[in-house]
């Protein structure tokens, strides 16, 4: 479909087939009713005094509708394929060169470690901004070996990066299901109902404690919201790169969560100090004084210890459950 076809469609068909156009028009305070008149006719016959009252000019409304439809059409385009992400080193806070060129591929998990204030979030921000030597670190980011189109920077349709941030709070007054549906609709995904059901089911598999679809998002536990956001990111986001900034680990199956994201063939960068997550990664970037100081490949020896770590983790989990169910902890030898 191209844009001019929308204008030749009757308002009755628009309401049925393209509800987002109705949404667009009503968001300007306009009234939309089904009729045989085309969208073009509708626009040509808008009452100019009414537009003035609504605080929009005829010209601006038409321009906005054009921009809006262009964006909507772009949403249904497939994303350009990202085969590689390259980080070309800049310098640390004292100006010392990083001297590195790092190539990352889909399906890889890279952990970012380092003390608070060392520059982990800055590195993630450099990637999100597709830095070209224009950030405090002077790093450059290449996509598929090239300086990417600047559309990656500002477009909401072609977002290169989906970010899972530290904060998982909600303020909207919606149930989990309504919220995910609204998110899916804003992405114009095909078959939103199926996607919504998939996300809720997946989130319940990740969360330690189950929740019903009609649970208000504001009353989800920390673990449940994280599970919901990870499932949402894996299933709804088309972005080829996922950034995870210091996700807390309580109340969620980390291994399953990571597997779910990896399975979507994303490049995953994760700021974390959690030993289990760190060992599940392929490499660790050690950040010091604003620069990438060291790159550690997760070794076989390290990976072997993953089993021990998971056992320890399960022990703690069992103790946590005992506390939750009102048990006491005088005897913990058996766990």
């Amino acid at each position: 479909m191209n844009i001019s076809e929308f204008f030749l469609t009757s308002m009755a068909d628009i309401l049925v087939d393209h509800p987002y156009i109705e949404d667009f028009l009503t968001s300007f305070g306009l009234i939309v009713k089904p009729s045989d008149d085309t969208l073009q006719h509708y626009l040509d016959n808008l009452d100019q005094d009414n537009l003035e009252d609504l605080g929009v000019s005829d010209e601006q409304l038409r321009q906005s509708l054009d921009d809006f439809l262009t964006g909507m059409l772009a949403l249904s385009d497939p994303m350009d394929k990202v085969e590689s992400l390259t980080i070309i080193g800049g310098h640390d806070k004292s100006g010392k060169a990083e001297n590195l060129e790092l190539n990352l591929k889909p399906g890889e998990v890279i952990c970012i470690v380092g003390p608070t204030g060392s520059g982990k979030s800055r590195l993630l921000a450099d990637i999100e901004w597709v830095a070209q030597g224009d950030t405090p670190t002077s790093r450059k980011i290449l996509i598929n070996g090239q300086v990417p189109d600047s559309k990656w920077r500002f477009s909401t349709e072609y977002k290169l990066v989906a970010q899972l941030s530290q904060n998982m709070n909600f303020v909207m007054d919606l149930s989990a299901e309504e919220f995910i549906r609204m998110h899916a609709e804003s992405r114009l995904v095909t078959d939103p109902e199926k996607k919504v059901a998939q996300i809720l089911q997946q989130a319940n598999e990740l969360a330690g404690e189950q929740f019903a679809p009609d649970t208000p998002v504001t009353s989800l536990s920390g673990g449940q919201s994280r599970a919901l956001m990870i499932a949402d990111m894996a299933i709804l986001s088309k972005s080829p790169i996922a950034l995870i900034d210091e996700i807390e680990n309580a109340g969620i199956d980390r291994k399953k969560a990571l597997d779910l994201l990896v399975q979507e063939e994303k490049i995953i960068l994760m700021a974390t100090h959690d030993p289990i997550l760190a060992l599940m990664g392929d490499r660790r970037l050690v950040i010091k004084n604003g620069g990438i100081d060291k790159i550690i490949e997760s070794s076989e020896e390290e990976r072997k210890n993953l089993v021990t770590l998971e056992k320890l983790d399960n022990k703690l989990l069992a103790l946590r459950n005992r506390i939750r169910t009102g048990d006491t902890l005088e005897h913990i030898e058996g766990v």
Partner: peptide, 12 residues
């Protein structure tokens, strides 16, 4: 203060 999904919904 909010989750990234809520940021995306608001931005949309």
């Amino acid at each position: 203060i909010v989750s990234q999904a809520e940021r995306e919904v608001f931005a949309s």
